[in-house]
Write a protein that binds this DNA or RNA. Structure first.
Lengths: 338, 338
DNA sequence: GCGCCACGTCGTAGATGGTCGCCATGGGCC
DNA sequence: GGCCCATGGCGACCATCTACGACGTGGCGC
């Protein structure tokens, strides 16, 4: 690889002049500029970003720490982030934490070691001290989707509580009596908020919450399946509707229902949180609380860009709205005899 | 951020000794080792990877250039890559080329500038000279999924031709008469190979290929939709089966069929290439040619790791097998009267 | 007309943080 | 007493950026 000195020698100028030409700083005689550019082209010179980063004390890499690259929720978000990063001349380093706090803090360490320009994280633990390493070391951070109290950073969230309340209210209004809830790990803010929304809907309707119909699982397919099975196997009458707090668990729950021969929505209605990819191909089509995932990614990335540009600005928190998409899985089957 | 010199001063040794302790190279007195480690802990020292990379002339970043983060085919592959990279102590930089040759070569430039340890690419163009920049600059490369002739690098492919032939043969054996094919952009090896497999099946069955039933689209949902529409609108009898050469186009085609009220498989049978996420929830369930996507990612990553460790080893090419998963969309409806 | 000042332009040199080759030192063993 | 090995420190090196200083030229003022 040619270095800036090779170019300088070739163009018969100093390395400083080459640097000035390439970075557009200071002023350089047009003749020399031309000679430099010609030398660059001839040698196929490409500046060494590592050396540049060291000297400038900053890189153009953004770490994006999420818990599952395979979840369409995150990929859509990553896409939003990538588009903004790319426009800002930055690259995205993808870190898969796998909902594993160890891996997560490992990646925080990597981001710090690599002097990354910033971090966008969807936390899967609540280790405040790990997260605060970042702002404490002067590394800009934006939290997205999930919230951890006591971390000094910007955040982009969605209105989970309202979304869940709207979904549950919809089921109540459809006349369902025993509405179950499969929520996520208690340590995750999204799970807590969605559960709160579920409760709020009952309160608003003046109805009591049946605690035996609430199950906390792990936001994964298998967990959703097992929670659904547990609900069906529990003593007492089975639920006639279920609100599932994320997309993977929705799939698991549906598979469980299919295994048991329960028909949606005739035997049991279902509303899921998060979008399902290619939802229109799934039968019955699933009523979901849709999140603006791409926009979440964009918003987080823009917040990060702003904070990098201006580290001292006040912390901000942005909350995006969800949309209830009513489809076939939650509409009362028309009674056979009216 | 503390530097190695701060640690050295704190432990009252030289920076070289700190470096030796941290890297386990050379031998250091246990007493000093202890003092160094204590200083590291006390200062919260974290080595500056940028400086290290500059000095060592190598980084621990792998660029992964794919065309669509949102396509489950790629995310599963990325997951495979990430798992291997993580085990090797490397991080993955995700680059979304969006099937855009400009973006793709931009990212190749970034990988070169950032002195990345290696590149895994699923090419969306056939600009041989762009790709060869990498091996020519001594940057290890592995091509995955798609092939570009004349590029000096390792590759991991799947047996597209055989997979497509198997799928088409299955439709022939089911007794379908007018089997259409929606393939991808001609410049992509996968599209060409899958089309060849389709033709092979007819040849093997001793049947002619009806060229009017072949459409090339863009591997995207919209393209699949429009190609399906064009097939239905064409003069002459409509096809009674269709082989669609990737997952996104399969979705598009199914949506088109739904719009037109054509029932799968009664009116038209369908086989898709690539896995569909949560395929079990889709009704009717779709017969697909399944690729070992996670394994493809793993294989590519392992190949990359080997080449990084041993740049002079001979070029290798690995081909993985596909599996035909027969589901409901391609099975002859049982005749009403036997 | 001459001299000084200001500005444009360019090169030198130091800084960035970590690694490692080489050399010096000291202690132990033969 | 001499040799060898363990250990530690110095300084070069990686490629780039940039502060500072130097040089030259042009313009303006006296």
């Amino acid at each position: 690889m040619a270095t800036i000195y090779d170019v300088a020698r070739h163009a018969d100028v100093s390395a400083a002049t080459v640097s000035r030409v390439l970075n557009g700083r200071g002023s350089v005689d047009p003749t020399l500029t031309e000679r430099v550019l010609a030398a660059v082209a001839e040698l196929g010179y490409r500046r060494n970003a590592v050396a540049r980063n060291l000297r400038k004390q900053q890189t153009s890499l953004w770490a994006v720490i999420i818990s599952d690259v395979q979840n369409p929720f995150f990929t859509s978000m990553v896409r939003g982030i990538e588009d903004v990063a790319s426009a800002a001349g930055c690259s995205v380093v993808l870190c898969n934490s796998d909902e594993n706090p160890e891996k997560e803090s490992k990646y925080i360490g990597v981001a710090l070691s690599e002097q990354m320009a910033g971090v966008i994280i969807s936390p899967s633990s609540d280790r405040t001290e790990d997260f605060n390493l970042l702002p404490d070391s002067g590394c800009p951070v934006v939290m997205v989707d999930r919230q951890v109290k006591g971390v000094r950073c910007d955040s982009v969230l969605v209105d989970n509580e309202h979304g869940a309340e709207e979904a549950t209210t919809h089921l109540i209004e459809q006349g369902y009596e025993r509405i179950a809830c499969i929520t996520g790990p208690r340590r995750l803010s999204t799970a807590a908020q969605r559960l709160r929304g579920y409760r709020n809907a009952f309160k608003a309707a003046g109805r009591p919450v049946d605690e035996s119909l609430i199950r906390a699982a792990d936001f994964r397919e298998h967990g959703g399946h097992d929670a659904m099975a547990a609900l069906l196997d529990a003593a007492g009458p089975a639920p006639d509707a279920v609100f599932v707090a994320n997309n993977l668990m929705t799939v698991g729950a549906m598979e469980c229902l299919a295994e048991r021969g329960r028909v949606i929505p005739d035997d049991i209605a279902l509303v899921g949180f998060d979008e399902i990819p290619w939802a229109d191909l799934v039968r019955p089509s699933i009523t979901t609380v849709e999140q603006p995932t791409y926009e979440e990614g964009r918003a987080a990335a823009e917040l990060l860009a702003h904070r990098i540009a201006n580290p001292d600005r006040a912390l901000t928190q942005q909350t995006l709205k969800t949309t209830l998409r009513v489809r076939a899985s939650s509409t009362r089957p028309t009674p056979l005899s009216p």
